[in-house]
Amino acid sequence: MATPNTPLWEVFIRSRNGLAHKHVGSLHATDATLALQAARDIYTRRGEGLSIWVVPSSAITASDPSEKGMMFEPAESKIYRHPTFYEVPEEVGHM
């Protein structure tokens, strides 16, 4: 049982052929060293990773879900920001 004194950590793994670390989940650990070991034991058991980051969950500043209108809706009407209005010349082939 994780006590209230056991901090939460977010785990990021870079896979064998991945370029970036991806968030894979979270865990409880008393300090960074044990968090790294626990991440290894929980999230890389099937050869998933070559590199691990652990970050205290408390270090993450998250956007407020109640502000999602202000934060994200303005972008929804700006479809011209997607690069879908260009004709790609035949000669270019597959990009």
């Binding site: 049982m1 994780a2 056991t6 865990l27 409880h28 650990a29 044990l34 070991q37 626990a38 034991d41 929980i42 058991r45």
Partner: peptide, 12 residues
């Protein structure tokens, strides 16, 4: 084990 994380570590 005392916590899930250590349960996994010991089983590993």
């Amino acid at each position: 084990a005392p916590m899930l994380e250590e349960d996994m570590a010991l089983a590993n």
